[in-house]
Amino acid sequence: MLKVRKVQEKRGWAWATVVAIIKPLLITTTKHEWIDGEKIPASGGCVVAMNHISHIDPLTLGWLLYEHGRLVRYLAKDALFETPVVKHIVRDAKQIPVSRLTSDAAKAFDAACQAVRDGECVGVYPEGTITKDPTGWPMRGKTGAARIALETGCPVIPIGQWGAQDILPAYSLRFHAFPRRTAHYKVGDPVDLSDLVGRPITNDLLQEATERIMAAITDLVADLRGEPAPAVRFDPRAAGVRQIGNPRKDKKRRRA
């Protein structure tokens, strides 16, 4: 039985509005399974790191965290901060803009570190985008979550998810509300980075920490899927797949 924790942080109008609108919508159109949610820290700065399979999973994951007492600050693509209406919500909700594949991404890192030091919960998708793995497994991760953790010494809480792609398939507008599909989430123990914290932050160190984070997430996804993960994580660059955006567009161009 879920033991709901009351959010202790101050909520602005954006959070109050989103909870009032989105939570009832999710309750009526989706089902959920939350496993080991008590492993989410009740307070204090932390990073939650998870796989990305659908445009709806920031909402379903945000619901999980909210019901366990945390307001999540996502590292979100900067386009949202220029979108009418949405821009006002993400700004008031203190989400962190990321200019992906640009040098400005460092600004997001600084903001995320400060948020963690201020005791907040920062949500990071280490893959940087919805997975490009053809079968939906977590793909090769980027170093953002690891960098924040090594810089601040905060815990990294891995979360595996599966099922949100059945509610809203990746890069699709077809929301499957009925019959209701289930989004499954499993929270893991903090990733052990204790031997890496305090050392000079080099690329090799970041890659080692990132591999541990992605391994923890992948193990959780494997538990939810009930099958073993691929021996090697999908690398979009090596596969010649665009790193961000809809990979199906590339296939259409090649056919044309």
Score class of each variant (00 low, 15 high):
M1Q: 13
M1D: 12
V4P: 13
E9W: 09
K10Y: 05
R11S: 12
T28M: 15
K39S: 09
K39A: 10
I40C: 06
C46Q: 07
V47W: 07
M50R: 08
S54Q: 00
D57Q: 10
D57A: 10
T60R: 11
L61Q: 10
G62T: 06
L65Y: 00
E67N: 14
G69A: 06
G69K: 09
R70Q: 03
K77C: 09
A79C: 11
L80P: 04
V86T: 14
V90E: 04
Q95S: 11
Q95F: 09
I96T: 04
P97A: 04
R100G: 01
T102M: 13
S103H: 14
A108N: 05
A115D: 05
G119S: 11
E120L: 07
C121F: 05
V124H: 10
Y125R: 11
T131V: 13
K132D: 00
T135Q: 15
R140A: 04
K142E: 14
K142C: 02
A145K: 03
A149D: 03
T152A: 15
W162A: 05
G163V: 11
A164C: 13
A164R: 04
Q165R: 10
Q165D: 13
P169F: 01
P169Y: 06
H176F: 13
P190R: 01
D192Q: 03
I201Q: 06
D204L: 13
E208H: 10
E208R: 06
V221Y: 02
G226C: 01
P228N: 04
P230M: 08
V232D: 12
R233Q: 11
D235P: 03
D235W: 05
P236V: 01
G240L: 03
V241W: 04
K252A: 12
A256W: 15
